[in-house]
Amino acid sequence: MADINELAEKKLKSRIRKIKKCNKDETEKQKFFDQLGTSFEIFFPNKKPEELSDSLIIWTTPEGKVIDAEYSYEIPENEEFTSIQVSEKDLKVILESLEDFKFELSE
């Protein structure tokens, strides 16, 4: 059986080929990305990350509509962890702060 790193590399190459195909064909792009939502995690800065780690995970539909959010709080030293659903009211505040956020490659 192949090494997990080899399998991951092979799958990544396959995904990149598919995305390149989608970039050239609008129909293919719609078909592929209509199935694809996303999630991303925001790690909040902490003065002592070894003592406290907290983050926010946001899930979206393929159209970019937020469908769920969760706040995670961890005390690594004690191996304690919890997560809390983010209320719609709090989520609106968070999304407002991210409205100008844009993905770009750093140079």
Rank of each mutant, 00 (worst) to 15 (best):
W59L: 02
W59C: 07
N78T: 02
L98H: 06
Y73K: 09
I16K: 14
D54W: 10
D100V: 00
E99K: 13
L95Y: 07
Q35V: 05
T27C: 07
D3Y: 03
L105T: 07
E9M: 11
Y73D: 06
I4F: 08
E28S: 13
D25V: 01
V86R: 00
E80D: 05
E28W: 05
L95H: 03
A69F: 03
S14W: 06
I58D: 00
E26A: 09
E9I: 11
F81M: 12
N23K: 15
K29S: 10
S72K: 07
V66D: 02
E63G: 14
S106T: 10
F33P: 00
E70K: 08
K65D: 07
V66F: 10
R17D: 15
L12C: 09
S39F: 11
K21I: 10
P49T: 08
S39Y: 14
K29M: 11
L7V: 08
I94A: 01
F33R: 09
S72I: 03
K92D: 01
P76N: 04
I19A: 15
S39W: 12
P76S: 11
E63L: 09
D68A: 11
S14D: 13
I58S: 04
F103T: 08
K21W: 15
F33C: 06
S55T: 03
D100M: 06
P49V: 06
L98E: 01
E79S: 13
G64P: 06
S97I: 00
K13H: 14
I94L: 02
E6I: 14
F33V: 08
